[in-house]
């Protein structure tokens, strides 16, 4: 009778319920068939239970992604909550997979679930990490490109939270532009 189960402990609720998605590229299948919803969570405790259970991003094989989005938003440009938005993009060198990738991704997750962007946190849709042989990427997605004040505030806070040098520059790209160009050619709408 003295045993306390996790169900009896008051967990710390998050502002939003979040969904973890996993993508593994199987070229013979349509893109959407390769994307799976893993689970959702809405407490601090359940976030850590999930985080400690899944593979670190640096251990995933190439052409896999994790996405974490507010529940109900699919991790794709076409979703109505994403299509007018864009992303702050962090591009990493091959060497950074072993030195920085997991730390930067965890920091990104903590920014999201902790609502780190103050009154602009509602603008955040989610984040994506792409594991790629040519260099990994992390992106923070927001819902409306035209909300300049919100987008730049989020970018400044995000850059600071990632511990990037003040000399480093990160760019924000509209999904509408990324969808029509290869990402290496997409122009930055904002930089911080």
């Amino acid at each position: 009778k003295d045993v306390v189960t996790t169900e009896n402990v008051d967990k710390h609720p998050l502002q939003s319920r979040w969904a973890l998605w996993f993508f593994k590229n199987v070229r013979s299948q349509p893109w959407q068939c390769n994307l799976r919803l893993v689970t959702t969570f809405n407490t601090v405790e359940d976030f850590w239970a999930l985080y400690t259970h899944v593979q670190l991003a640096s251990k995933l094989s190439s052409e896999c992604d994790y996405s974490i989005f507010k529940d109900g938003i699919e991790p794709m440009w076409e979703d109505s909550r994403n299509k007018r938005g864009g992303r702050w993009l962090i591009t990493l060198s091959k060497q950074q997979r072993h030195s920085d990738l997991d730390t930067l991704w965890l920091e990104t997750l903590l920014c999201l679930i902790g609502e780190a962007f103050d009154e602009y946190s509602e603008e955040v849709c989610g984040a994506v990490i792409n594991i790629r042989a040519k260099g990994d990427k992390i992106a923070l997605w927001t819902r409306e490109t035209e909300n300049r004040e919100a987008v730049t505030y989020i970018g400044r806070v995000y850059k600071e939270r990632l511990g990037l040098s003040s000399k480093a520059v990160i760019g924000y790209q509209a999904h509408a532009d990324t969808a029509t160009k290869s990402s290496s050619l997409t122009k930055n709408k904002f930089v911080v």
């Binding site: 609720p13 998050l14 502002q15 976030f47 850590w48 239970a49 902790g114 609502e115 780190a116 939270r161």
Partner: peptide, 20 residues
């Protein structure tokens, strides 16, 4: 009431949960 948590608070739960 908005539920926001700073990174130190969130990190504090990492090992509590892991040890459960």
């Amino acid at each position: 009431d908005k539920k926001s948590y700073d990174r130190e608070f969130l990190l504090g739960f990492q090992f509590i949960v892991a040890s459960m």
